Simulated assay, not measured.
Amino acid sequence: MVVVSHTVRVGAPVDEVFAHVDDPENHVEMTPSITAVSNVEPLDNGGKRLDYTYKMVGVSLTGTMETPEYAENNRIVFEMDGDLSGTLTWTFEAVDSATDVTYTAEYDLPGGVLGKVAEPIAVRYNERELRTTLENLRDRLELGR
C-alpha cells in the first residue's frame, strides 16, 4: 500500500475551506491529474458519491468515490474503487482565522512485478500531486479573497 500525506495552512476560515473541498467540481481545478468528475450524488451522511477520471503518468484511471465519513468543517474521507482502490482523507483544523488542511492518500497499486517497479515512481508522483493540490487550494482561496 502506498501512503502519502501533506499539510498546508490556508489563510481562510475553516468553513470556507471545507466548503471548497466539499464541492467535487473544484477538484478538477485543484488537482492536476483529475481530468473529470461526473454523476455526483448526495449521500444521507452529507457526503457524496461520484465517478472520476484520474491521469497518472499518462494513463487514465477511472472509478467511483464515496464518502463513508463526513464531519462538516472537520473531515472528509473518500473511498476509491475502480482502477485504483484506496482512501483519500481530508482533515481541517481551524487555527485563528486560518485553516490547517491535511490531505492523505492511501491506495494499492496493481500487484506483481509491475506494481513493485512502479511503486517508487507512484509515491514521488503522488507526493508532488498532493503538494500541488494543497497549494492550488491555498492560492485559490487566499488570492480570491
Rank of each mutant, 00 (worst) to 15 (best):
V3G: 05
S5V: 06
H6P: 01
V8Y: 03
R9G: 12
R9L: 15
A12P: 01
P13V: 07
P13E: 08
V17G: 06
V17D: 10
F18D: 04
H20Y: 15
H20T: 11
V21M: 03
D22Y: 07
D22H: 14
D23T: 07
E25V: 10
E25F: 13
N26Q: 07
N26E: 05
E29I: 11
E29L: 13
E29N: 14
M30L: 15
T31E: 13
T35D: 06
V37K: 01
S38G: 10
N39C: 04
V40H: 09
E41V: 13
E41Y: 05
P42R: 07
P42M: 00
P42T: 06
P42Q: 03
L43E: 12
N45C: 09
G46W: 12
G47P: 00
K48I: 10
K48L: 08
K48V: 11
Y52E: 06
T53F: 08
Y54P: 04
Y54E: 09
Y54R: 09
K55V: 11
G58C: 09
V59D: 08
V59E: 11
S60C: 12
S60P: 14
T62E: 14
G63N: 00
G63P: 00
T64E: 13
T64P: 03
T64K: 07
M65G: 13
M65W: 09
M65R: 09
E66G: 12
Y70V: 05
Y70Q: 03
E72Y: 09
N73V: 07
N73G: 11
N73W: 05
N74D: 15
N74L: 12
I76C: 02
I76Y: 00
V77L: 11
F78D: 15
E79G: 13
E79L: 13
E79T: 15
D81Q: 15
D81T: 14
D81A: 15
G82E: 03
D83Q: 07
D83M: 02
D83L: 08
L84H: 03
G86K: 02
G86L: 02
T89Q: 07
T89E: 13
W90D: 01
W90L: 01
W90S: 01
W90R: 01
A94L: 06
D96V: 03
D96C: 01
S97I: 05
D100I: 01
V101M: 01
V101W: 00
T102C: 04
T102P: 00
T102I: 02
Y103Q: 13
E106I: 04
Y107I: 04
D108Y: 01
L109E: 02
G111R: 06
G111Q: 08
G112Q: 12
G112W: 14
V113M: 15
L114P: 10
L114A: 15
L114F: 15
G115D: 09
K116F: 09
P120G: 04
R128P: 03
R128Q: 14
E129Y: 10
L130P: 00
L130Y: 03
L130R: 05
R131K: 15
R131L: 14
T133C: 10
N136S: 08
N136R: 05
R138W: 00
D139A: 14
L141H: 00
L143S: 15
L143V: 14
